[in-house]
Amino acid sequence: MGAKSGDGAVLSKTIDPLPMVDEEPAVEIVAREDFSDVTYLLEFRHPMMAKAAKPGQFVIVIPREHGERIPLTIADFDRDKGTITLVIQAVGKTTKEMQQACRTGTTLFSVVGPMGEPSHIGDLGKVVCVGGGLGVAPVFPQARAFKENGAYVIGVIGFRNKDLVFWEDKFRKYCDEFIICSDDGSVGIKGLVTEGIKAAMDNHDDIDEVIAIGPPIMMKACAETTRPSGIKTSVSLNPIMVDGTGMCGGCRVKIGGKMQFACVDGPDFDGHQVDFDDLMNRLKRFTEDEKLAVERWTETCRAGKAS
């Protein structure tokens, strides 16, 4: 085992330095909602960010002091209330811990954003906004923005089953047409969101753009669905990130064979150009460490409950 950084005390008699950083009002969680046992919504107060946020942008959160920086898409923002909404899926240590710790009234150690280039909401006639599973949340602000811009919006959302559905009504409100799909047919069309896209393409030959957000495998399938017709398909990539400011290159993705940094050059890219296999491979970078972290955390939780 190697040494730990931070054990290098040199100035034995160091005086307490003044606090370096101004005490910011901590970022407070003002609302929480649970959609299922793995998906939850957090709304936090940050008036300046709510004012600046645009569809397609994300934030980086460090939930507690020893935590890691995790990127999360801005699923909604309310300029009047001064709040930002995130929808989070508990997949690993950090998101599970947040699921347990974040309640209305608690605070987050650090939140920075909005980050990334906002989605381009052009003057389009007809768009299809596709959200797969959790992807429903990040695609929502885009659907709303297109609608407010006067576009004809076709919403396609998909879930594994009926119990996982969330934001159906909220989404539907901004859609001229609305298609819901489920893997097991327990709600809407039986099948993946690509079935919904095909249905929309069958009914409309004048679709200007498809916007698809969800797991990489789903975005890949969407891009393949539209490729033959050449309809522009925009996707939002979610590689592993650290700083989110273009400084580390951890988030590099391959777009049309060229390297780009998703945090500053994206996160939106042309789905027909994205190398999804590369993205999916790179998401496995820390599999072993992630497993270890969850195991350790679960053990601590159990020990905590027992004592």
């Binding site: 190697g2 040494a3 730990k4 950084s5 931070g6 020893h66 935590g67 890691e68 920086r69 240590k93 950090t94 650290v242 700083d243 400084m247 580390c248 290159g249 951890g250 590099r252 391959k254 390297m259 590369d278 491979n281 790179r282 496995k284 970078r285 820390f286 460490d289 992630e290 270890l292 972290a293 350790r296």
Partner: peptide
């Protein structure tokens, strides 16, 4: 270059110096 195990010095150093990856799993950054 996109194989896992290839990274920039900036990423390595940020993970270690700022995020304390050397102290994983006491700190969460791997």
């Amino acid at each position: 270059e996109s194989l896992n195990g290839v990274l920039s010095a900036n990423e390595l150093l940020t993970r270690c110096n700022l995020m304390h990856a050397g102290e994983f799993p006491d700190y969460d950054t791997p």
